[in-house]
Design a protein around this nucleic acid. Structure first.
Length: 790
DNA sequence: GCATACGGAGTACCA
DNA sequence: ACTGGTACTCCGTATGCG
C-alpha cells in the first residue's frame, strides 16, 4: 500500500551484522507510525590509480574479500572536479564499512577509499533524496508490532520513500517541555547524592503537570510518574533547557540507582549520547534550547529566563537563583514559590521552543540532519551536510576529513574612521559579499588550479594580491551549491510577498529563508575551516583578497565622485549621504565591480572615536545603533554600560557634552551613596579554560575558584559573575562571586574609576571632557556629599 | 623602594 | 568543532628615579 508521511526521526537499529533503518513518521491522519527499512546496503568508493584496470582490481577485491563484499560496480565519478574511475563496494555487513575500506586501500591499483565514513542514516537519506521534517510517499506493507514500540502502526518499506516537494507545512506536533530542579546545599547537584525534587512539564494542549518528591526528598516516585506521563502523552518532541549536557544523564543515573530503566522513548530504549553532543531518544525529537542560544549573541548571560525575556516569552514573575533552591525547598513558606518557579521555567521552555521550532525544522529539511541533531551540530557540519547533499546530486565523491596544519591568512579590510560627529551618513553594504565573490569568480575546491598546473582553455580568474588561479568554467561545486541557495531564498521571498505575515505559510517561509541565509553566509567560513572535508585554503584566501580589493576600489570610486568616506569594514562603506550621488555610486559599483550594493541605514548622526569597529549612530526613528562600544559588551558592569548609553543619547540627540557631564556626575553620586543595586555592579566573564590552566591570576578566574571551592561545578564556556570588594591588593584578590557578595562590601571607587568614568570618557574625551576632568568635578562632589554625611 | 611603562594574556566584539 | 581584524583591561615584570 501507498502511505504519505512526515519524517520525524530516523535511527539505525543494529542487529548483528544487519542494519535496519527505523523511520518514525506522522501520517496525514495524524497516526504515529514506524517504517522499517530492511534493504539498506552500505557502500563506499575505491578510487583507482589512473593506469589501473578497473575490472581487474574489482575481481581482485571480490576474490580477496568475499567475506565482506556483497557486490562491486565500476563507476565514473568526480573527485575535486576531476573525472575518476571508482569501484563502488557494497558491504555485506553495514557496520564494517570502515574495516573493509582499510583493507581495500591496500590493494594494488587502489588510490584511496572514500565515503566509508558516512553514517547509514545519512547515506540512506541523501542517496534517496529524503529529508527529515518533510513529507514523503512510500510503498509499504503493514506488519505486526512484534517490537513492542509505541506506534499506531508498523510497516516494512518495499521501496525507498520519495520526497514530496510541494507540501510545506508540518503536521501538528505533540510537544512536551519540562524543567527540573535538584536538591543540593553545596553547589551543583550531583546525581549520585542529590535527588530531583521538582519536575514540571507543559504540553501543547496547555496541560501543566508537576512532579514533586516526597517529604524525605525521595525522587523514585517522581521519576516513575514522569516516565509514565511521557509514555501516556506520547510526545513527538521533548524540549528542555540543558537536557543534553545535564538533565538526561542525571535522570538516567537516578533511575539506575533506584533500580529501574529510564525507558520513555518510543522504542523502550534509554536516552543515549549521540553525535554532536546531543542525547537521542528513539522516535522522539529531543531538543535542548541551549543549542539555540547561539542565535542570539545579544543575550550575554545565558540563562533560561534571560533567553525567554529576549524572545518576549513572559511566563512567570521572577526567577529563583540556583544557590537557594535547597533553602527554598526546606522552607515551608518558600517551597510554593519554588514550585511556581519550576512551572514558570517549563512554560518558558515551551514558549521559547514554540518560537524557534519552525526554524529548526527548516534547517533540518535543508541539511537533511535529523531535527534533534541539526541544532546541536556546529555551523561547519550543517554547511557540510548541505554540501554533501549537493555533491551526491552531481556525482562528486565526498572527501575524508584529513588532519591539516592550521595556517591563518589575511581577512577583511577595515578603514580607519574619521573621529567625531558626522551628520547624514549612509551605510553602503555589499550584499552577501563573500558568497557572491565565490559565485562571481567561481571559487571552489574543484576549480582551484594548483601552482604548476596548466591554464585551461576556458580561461582563469586570478585573485588580487594572492594570485591564486581558478578556472572560469565549468561551474564549480561551491558555485552550484551557493547559486542554488541564493535562488531558493529569492523564490521564498517572492512567495512571502504574496502572503500576510500572520499566516502559518508566511511564518514557515520566513523560517525557511532564515535557514537558507545562515547556510549561505557560513559558506566562506566553512571554506577556511581546517576541519572541513572540502578545505582548500586558497579558496577562502582568494575570497577575502577579492573582498579587500572590492571595498578599496569602491572607496576610491566614492572619493573620485566627491563622496566622502567616513569608515568601512569588510563589506561596508560609511559615506556622506547625497541621494543622487549615492544612487549613481551604487550603479557604478554594480557595473564596475560586478557585485550588488545596497544603501542600508542612513543615520541622522554618527559618532566615531579613533577606534575601528566601535561607533554609535542615531537612526531617523530616534533609536540608537551602538556598535562595539562598552554598551553592548557583556564584560562591563551594567552601571557603566547604562551611563555610556545615556551619554551617547545626550550627545547624539542633544549634542550637549555639558549635560552629559552633569549626568555622569549624578550617577557617580548615586554610586557613592550606594543607591545602585548590586546586580548593576556585576561583571560577567567567560571561563575560557580550566582555572588551573591560566598563566596569570585573573579576577574572573579567582571568582571561579571560589565557586568551585563551594561545590559549584564550572566548565569551560561558563560565565562567571563577580563584584569587586573593598580591601588591599590586586584586583584578583578582591573579587567574589556576586551570589555571595553583600552590598556594603563593595569597592565603590573601583566602579567609579574603572567602570563608569572610562565608559563615559570613551565618548566625552572627544569633547575635551577627559577622565581627569570627570574625576575632578566628581571629587568636589564627593567632598560635599561626605560633609553632608557627617 | 616605589611609580610607571610596556608587552602578554585574556576576553569580547565586528564583519 | 566556520573565518580574520580589532579594542581594551589587567597582570607581571622591566625600567627608571631617588
Amino acid at each position: 500500500m501507498k502511505l504519505t508521511f512526515w519524517l520525524l526521526d530516523i535511527n539505525p537499529k543494529v542487529d548483528g551484522g544487519k542494519v535496519e533503518l527505523w523511520l518514525w513518521g506522522i501520517t496525514e491522519s495524524g497516526d504515529r507510525v514506524l517504517l522499517v527499512e530492511r534493504n539498506f546496503v552500505a557502500y563506499f568508493y575505491a578510487i583507482l590509480h589512473g593506469a589501473a584496470d578497473a575490472t581487474l582490481v574489482s575481481q581482485k577485491i571480490m576474490l580477496r574479500h568475499s567475506n565482506l563484499v556483497a557486490q562491486t560496480e565500476v563507476v565514473q565519478r568526480r573527485f575535486f572536479g576531476k573525472l575518476v574511475t571508482a569501484i563502488k563496494f557494497s558491504c555485506k555487513d553495514a557496520t564494517q564499512t570502515g574495516k573493509a575500506a582499510r583493507l581495500v586501500r591496500k590493494i594494488d591499483g587502489v588510490s584511496d577509499c572514500y565515503e566509508d565514513d558516512i553514517r547509514a542514516v545519512m547515506r540512506y537519506l541523501i542517496d534517496n533524496g529524503l529529508a527529515p521534517c518533510s513529507w514523503h510517499e512510500v510503498e509499504v506493507t503493514e506488519e505486526a508490532n512484534t517490537q513492542g514500540v509505541r506506534a499506531v502502526k508498523i510497516y516494512s518499506i518495499n521501496t525507498p520513500p520519495e520526497l514530496l516537494e510541494n507540501i510545506a507545512v508540518a503536521p501538528p506536533l505533540r510537544t512536551l517541555a519540562y524543567s527540573m530542579i535538584s536538591y543540593s546545599h553545596k553547589g551543583t547537584p550531583k546525581a549520585d547524592r542529590n535527588p530531583v525534587v521538582m519536575l514540571s512539564a507543559v504540553t501543547g494542549d496547555g496541560v501543566e503537570k508537576q512532579f514533586i518528591a516526597g517529604q524525605d526528598r525521595d525522587d523514585k516516585r517522581l521519576i516513575q510518574a514522569f516516565i509514565a506521563y511521557v509514555r501516556e502523552y506520547d510526545p513527538d518532541v521533548i524540549v528542555s533547557y540543558g537536557g543534553n549536557a545535564t538533565d538526561w544523564s542525571y535522570l538516567l543515573q537516578r533511575c539506575h540507582m533506584h533500580g529501574f530503566l529510564l525507558s520513555l522513548d518510543r522504542a523502550g530504549f534509554e536516552p543515549h549520547s549521540s553525535v554532536y553532543g546531543h542525547v537521542s531518544l528513539t522516535g522522539i525529537v529531543n531538543l535542548d534550547l541551549v543549542n539555540f542560544e547561539a542565535m542570539f549573541p545579544e543575550v550575554k548571560v545565558k540563562t533560561l529566563s534571560n533567553f525567554a525575556k529576549k524572545l518576549g516569552v513572559t511566563a512567570g514573575q521572577g526567577t529563583v537563583d540556583d544557590v537557594v533552591f535547597a533553602d527554598y525547598w526546606d522552607s515551608d513558606a518558600k517551597r510554593g514559590e519554588l514550585l511556581m518557579f519550576s512551572l514558570d521555567s517549563a512554560h518558558r521552555v515551551y514558549g521559547v521552543a514554540s518560537l524557534l521550532l519552525d526554524f529548526a525544522i527548516e534547517l533540518s529539511a535543508l541539511t537533511s540532519l535529523p531535527l534533534d541533531q541539526v541544532m546541536s551540530a556546529a555551523t561547519g557540519f550543517r554547511v557540510e551536510w548541505y554540501l554533501i547533499k549537493r555533491a551526491q546530486k552531481i556525482g562528486e565523491i565526498v572527501p575524508r576529513r584529513v588532519e591539516q596544519t592550521y595556517m591563518t591568512y589575511t581577512g577583511g579590510l577595515v578603514l580607519s574612521p574619521k573621529p567625531g560627529l558626522h551628520e547624514n551618513i549612509a551605510v553602503l553594504d555589499f550584499k552577501s559579499m563573500y558568497p557572491n565573490i565565490m559565485i562571481t569568480y567561481n571559487l571552489s575546491p574543484d576549480t582551484y588550479i594548483q601552482p604548476g598546473d596548466p591554464e585551461p582553455a576556458e580561461g582563469i580568474n586570478v585573485a588580487p594580491e594572492v594570485g591564486y588561479r581558478f578556472r572560469k568554467a565549468p561551474a564549480g561545486f561551491f558555485q552550484e551549491a551557493l547559486t542554488y541557495l541564493i535562488d531558493v531564498r529569492g523564490d521564498i521571498r517572492k512567495k512571502m510577498k504574496l502572503l500576510t505575515p500572520k499566516t502559518v505559510e508566511y511564518q514557515v517561509l520566513d523560517a525557511r529563508q532564515k535557514a537558507v541565509k545562515i547556510l549561505t553566509n557560513a559558506a566562506y567560513g566553512y571554506a577556511g575551516w581546517v576541519g572541513a572535508r572540502w578545505y582548500i585554503k586558497p579558496v577562502a584566501e582568494a575570497a577575502s583578497a577579492w573582498g579587500r580589493h572590492i571595498i578599496l576600489a569602491a572607496s576610491q570610486m566614492a572619493q573620485k565622485a566627491g563622496v566622502a568616506v567616513i569608515y568601512g569594514d569588510t563589506d561596508s562603506l560609511f559615506i556622506e549621504y547625497d541621494k543622487a550621488k549615492a544612487d549613481q555610486l551604487q550603479a557604478d559599483v554594480k557595473r564596475e565591480l560586478k557585485l550588488d550594493v545596497e544603501i542600508g541605514e542612513v543615520y541622522v548622526r554618527v559618532f566615531f572615536t579613533e577606534a575601528k569597529k566601535r561607533y554609535a549612530g542615531l537612526r531617523k526613528d530616534g533609536s540608537l545603533d551602538i556598535v562595539g562600544l562598552e554598551v553592548i559588551r557583556g564584560d562591563w558592569a551594567e552601571v557603566a554600560k547604562h551611563v555610556q548609553e545615556h551619554v551617547l543619547e545626550i550627545i547624539l540627540k542633544e549634542q550637549s557634552p555639558e549635560k552629559a557631564l552633569e549626568y555622569v556626575r549624578s550617577i557617580v553620586i548615586d554610586l557613592r551613596k550606594r543607591r545602585v543595586p548590586l546586580e548593576d555592579l556585576v561583571i560577567w566573564k567567560t571561563l575560557m579554560k580550566a582555572p588551573e590552566d591560566y598563566a596569570v591570576r585573573a579576577p574572573h578566574v579567582e571568582a571561579a575558584k571560589t565557586l568551585i571551592s563551594r561545590g559549584w561545578h564550572l566548565s569551560t564556556g561558563d560565565k562567571v559573575g563577580y563584584v569587586v570588594l573593598a580591601g588591599k591588593g590586586p584586583l584578583y584578590a578582591r573579587v567574589t562571586p556576586y551570589v555571595y557578595a553583600k552590598g556594603d562590601q563593595i569597592d565603590i571607587e573601583y566602579y567609579v574609576s574603572n567602570q563608569v568614568l572610562p565608559a563615559a570618557a570613551r565618548i566625552l574625551a572627544y569633547f575635551d571632557i577627559n577622565e581627569k576632568e570627570l574625576a575632578r568635578t566628581t571629587k568636589e562632589e564627593k567632598t560635599r556629599s561626605l560633609t553632608d554625611y557627617f
